[in-house]
Design a protein around this nucleic acid. Structure first.
Lengths: 211, 211
DNA sequence: TATTGACTGTGATATTTATCACAAAGTCCT
DNA sequence: AGGACTTTGTGATAAATATCACAGTCAATA
């Protein structure tokens, strides 16, 4: 388990008691890159606070197609798993580890208790929802209004922000995230290369557009 | 202004002090059907709690195209306007009155104060975010995975849930909400009529599909 | 170095959606 | 009744995206 200072660094401004409750009741779990942390429809048993690594949040449809929504980084939390008593407890999202990750898992029975007990937890929950809500708005904006070339550019920029200019992604992986086909992604990337926005390599490419 | 009992009926389970603060500081405003209540990019000055009527929430793009996300009903609140100190205060959504509406407008300077002061307000804010977040997830699901025929069906079902089986909507209005063109909507509605899902009239149609 | 498998490029074609064009039908107003 | 305007229907065509087919390239490894 982490010690108080380590938790405090990730989640500043909490009450002392909250840190102690975390240490007492949370479990520090790890998962390797690529692991599925939460499936759609799965019963939610614990809240997830990211400690190390990056988590990707998806929508998923009946056939298993995926749609990328946003990233979670250390110090951030999964809004969906912050279940309160008055609400359904089935996950509506799919969460996957992008890198090796570690996270704090808190059994959901503490959610209501802590909301009552710790003001700083209350604020944290609100902040988490607000940030995720805003990410969803951006995702809707791209999806509803833009063509695939612009959506791909938006997607790449998000990745660049997360991981830097050199991205280790295959065309197929990108196509999965955007719910399109590999061929479409290949052709659009080739166009971006012609416009000198990227340099293409096998299994990776580099974002070089300056704007 | 509403009296305490009226507010209590719409927003049950609040603390007494919160009702009194509402009465003291909130303003009861009205707007006619079709009015714009909140523009994208607009500075948020007050939180909106719906008292009567139905409000529609949209995303909007640079060219003024709209994309319908969800409805707000009496007793519900606009998550976007529940601004806390630590966050930007520019609206990322467009809100319009569908019917004549009345709503309570609370200056945002009370948000932080009330979060500190009233536990029930805190819960209300979390609940609001959670409900809106879930609506956004549904919207993304439809937009990302479905073709226009299925999206139109989903849209109509949402409207039916709100307003009953007879919907007073022109094809152009539907097209605007779904960010598509009037012709596409006309053709798809005609198909639905052939399948006996709807009965078409001028300026309205009726949902008769049983499933 | 030969084979295998994953990844990429690209033409051809199909499907979906958008756009243009115009006619027909309903509504409102005088 | 006669316009003027809004709404709806529908063909023709264009543009965007999806799907199929297949070849070429790279990397791992037996």
């Amino acid at each position: 388990m982490l010690n108080k200072d380590q938790i405090k660094q990730l989640f500043p401004d909490w009450e002392d008691g909250l840190y102690e409750s975390i240490i007492e009741h949370a479990e520090l779990r790890t998962a390797p890159a690529g692991a599925t942390l939460l499936k759609m429809g799965q019963n939610i048993k614990s809240t997830m606070l990211v400690v190390e690594g990056t988590v990707k949040l998806y929508q998923e449809n009946e056939e298993g197609a995926e749609y990328f929504m946003y990233h979670l980084n250390p110090g951030e939390a999964c809004a969906v798993t912050m279940v309160c008593n008055y609400h359904l407890e089935q996950s509506q999202v799919l969460a996957k580890a992008v890198t090796d990750v570690s996270f704090l898992a808190i059994p959901i029975e503490f959610m209501d208790k802590w909301l009552n007990q710790y003001k700083s937890w209350h604020y944290f929950v609100i902040r988490t929802y607000r940030l995720r809500y805003e990410e969803l708005l951006k995702t809707i904006h791209e999806t509803a209004f833009k063509n695939m070339d612009e959506r791909l550019e938006f997607y790449i920029k998000r990745q660049v922000k997360q991981f830097g200019n050199t991205l280790k992604l295959t065309h197929q992986e990108i196509a999965n995230d955007l719910n399109t086909s590999r061929e479409v992604v290949s052709r659009l990337l080739k166009k971006m290369e012609n416009h000198q926005w990227i340099v293409l390599n096998r299994n990776s490419f580099e974002w070089i557009k300056k704007d």
